[in-house]
Design a protein around this nucleic acid. Structure first.
Lengths: 228, 228
DNA sequence: CAGGCTACGTGTACGGCGTACACTTGTCAA
DNA sequence: TTGACAAGTGTACGCCGTACACGTAGCCTG
């Protein structure tokens, strides 16, 4: 029947770059970036893998597009405060976006070329520092020094202590004290410290802001010295 | 002939974890980490892929072992100076090791669990701060704040401007000035600045040390405040 | 010296990946 | 009606990591 086939074809709404990216982001949020393959995304959309290639060059472009979605969630820059507050808040907004999409920082690290969206974000970040009175040279160094922190993340070397905690039995615990006495000592102190908070482990937000403020304060001093 | 086969079998010296790791590191140094597959490493050693699995659990362990090789190249901690000098020099030594093996930082970012070797390195790093008079709490924050910088690297968002430079034609250049005026301005200033150095682009070492000192100075201040 | 155990290297095979390329099909303008 | 064009399909290729069964050579014990 003509009508039915027409109905069916209009019922299944057509693919588009946006629909693909949304599905991919949702999949990565739900099952992690390791589960994200062209084939899997296609399956999620009820479509054959090669169909994606009508809207995307390749997987690289898919990943880039997904990052653009995340970057798009970062708040715009405030213009009604001093540079430090504005930068600080924006970076925390970026961090919040990355926390909603935990795969994003890892994908970002992997890529070599930034997308136009990311470039735009960097551009507006530069603008914030320049508007705050930073010289071109200092701003340049700042951008390097801040690095990925501008995007709201910093790579921790062992990021997963919250995971290892509960299953750590007494045996490995004491073994650790012999092999890595300093780490053990730190670990012990932190566990005690945070007894009031839910469970042991570090307060990630505090640690991030500690490091962020360390940098911002240092930059402030550099700027003041430069202008003096 | 018995003798010949005996000779042959002794001529081809047996595989070992060390030989495999060395071959893998050499391969990654030469052709990049993307070219590194179990099959490729095996081929490099004139052996069938599955042979590697007699000495290694899986590819994860191969990567971990490769990182251990790199970490093993980092100088030991000096004990004859103040904490800041000692930490600074050691981190720069780590950076030098990573520059010799450009794939290493990316591999490190990828992994979740640190190897015992890396744990040992972290332990000794903690020791340096503690010996320098940092409290346990502050040391803890320091470790988080320093993050991957402790291992001698920091992730830059667009790490490859030196590559894009030469082939950038006038057209894209002016297009950039319209789309990303602030990046353009920065770029222009930097290019001018470094005319004395060989070619344009940034002095990576300077940028790394700028950020490192920014952190170390900030930490110094924290420590002094704490002790006051 | 015989026999078997063990450590090490081999061969084959499986399921998954990204994606090239040739094909159908559905839509709409001329 | 037709025929061009865009969107989705199907098949296939060459990679990947690695499970598993199989030799085989060397040593240890009887």
């Amino acid at each position: 029947m003509k009508t039915e086939s027409t109905v069916r074809s209009t019922t299944r709404e057509p693919l588009s770059r946006e629909r693909i990216l949304a599905a991919a982001v949702a999949l990565a949020d739900r099952e992690g970036v390791d589960a994200l393959s062209m084939r899997r995304v296609a399956q999620e959309l009820g479509v054959v893998p090669m169909a994606l290639y009508k809207h995307l060059e390749n997987k690289e472009e898919l990943l880039g597009g997904m990052l653009d979605v995340v970057v798009g969630e970062i708040d715009a820059a405030r213009t009604d405060t001093d540079w430090k507050t504005a930068v600080r808040e924006r970076i925390l907004s970026a961090r919040a976006a990355l926390l909603r999409h935990p795969w994003a920082s890892r994908v970002m690290e992997t890529r070599t070329e930034p997308t136009p969206t990311v470039m735009g974000y960097m551009d507006s970040m530069i603008e914030m520092f320049r508007a705050g009175g930073f010289s071109i040279d200092l701003t340049h160094h700042v951008m390097h020094a801040m690095g990925s922190r501008l995007m709201g993340f910093s790579q921790e070397l062992f990021n997963d202590q919250s995971d290892a905690d509960p299953q750590m039995d007494a045996e490995t615990f004491t073994a650790m004290s012999a092999t890595y006495p300093r780490i053990y000592e730190l670990f012990l102190a932190v566990s005690h410290d945070e007894a009031s908070v839910v469970g042991p482990g570090c307060d990630d937000r505090f640690e991030f802001e500690f490091a962020l403020d360390l940098m911002l304060d240092g930059l402030q001093r550099h700027k003041d010295r430069e202008q003096a």
